[in-house]
Amino acid sequence: MGIRRATEADRPTLIRLLEEAFEADPVTRWVFPEADNRQKLSGLFFGVFADVALAEGRVDLLEDGTAMALWLQEEAGLPEEDETPARMRAVSDPDNERTELVGRLTGAVHPHDRAHEYLLMIAVSPDHQGQGLGRKLIESVLERCDRDGVPAYLEASSARSKRLYERLGFDFTGTTVDLPDGPHMWPMWREPQAH
């Protein structure tokens, strides 16, 4: 199965994948604790991530539409004020401060001392999870990172995903993102590896 770069025309597929893949995710359930709200609003919330990656980064999509990865190339140095968390709240659920807080808390621990590839999100359709599709999407970028000497970064939103990323060479940075009365997220860094 080939990987292609997604375009704006793929946006509905990207949002569907994100909704399906993250419906049971601990962080998504913390952001939208009520099932009705989650079903109604999570697509708007995830749409902001898709829009940012389509406009400022890269979205890798399996040709059959079963998995995708959102990547951003982060430069070294402190970024300008990130308006994305406020946009997540404004677009999805203005009365729900958690829609903004999750972005503010992850942004506060994001390393900025070196340029790196940032895996913003990865989504695999639930019917296709456990088949190595996410790994295939990640490895295609990590191979380039290794070749070019570029580190990579992400936040794992579950203990299960943390274990997967550890197998790919990512290391926990040592400080969790602790969502108030909610789950932990694990910031993870991967140095380029020689082959």
Rank of each mutant, 00 (worst) to 15 (best):
R87W: 07
D82S: 06
E83L: 15
Q129E: 13
L137I: 00
A90C: 08
L168P: 00
V150L: 15
G174I: 09
R160V: 14
V141W: 05
L17Y: 06
I122D: 07
D93A: 12
A123M: 01
I15F: 05
L119Y: 02
V31I: 15
I15H: 02
L142A: 05
T106P: 03
T13L: 15
S42F: 09
T173H: 03
R160Y: 13
A24S: 15
T28V: 07
T66F: 04
R190N: 06
G2T: 14
T66Y: 01
F32N: 05
T28K: 06
H110C: 11
P33H: 12
Q193V: 04
V124E: 01
E97V: 06
T84P: 02
P111N: 09
S140E: 14
K40E: 14
V52W: 10
A69T: 01
D146L: 03
E166Y: 09
A115D: 06
V102S: 13
P12A: 12
D146K: 03
L133S: 08
P111Y: 05
R11G: 01
G182N: 13
P12F: 10
D171W: 09
H195A: 15
D178E: 14
F45Q: 01
G65F: 10
T84F: 00
R5I: 13
A159E: 15
Q73W: 11
G43I: 07
A152T: 00
E117G: 11
W186S: 03
D82C: 00
S92W: 07
G130S: 15
R98K: 14
E81W: 07
D64K: 06
V52Q: 11
Q39N: 12
G57S: 09
V177Y: 10
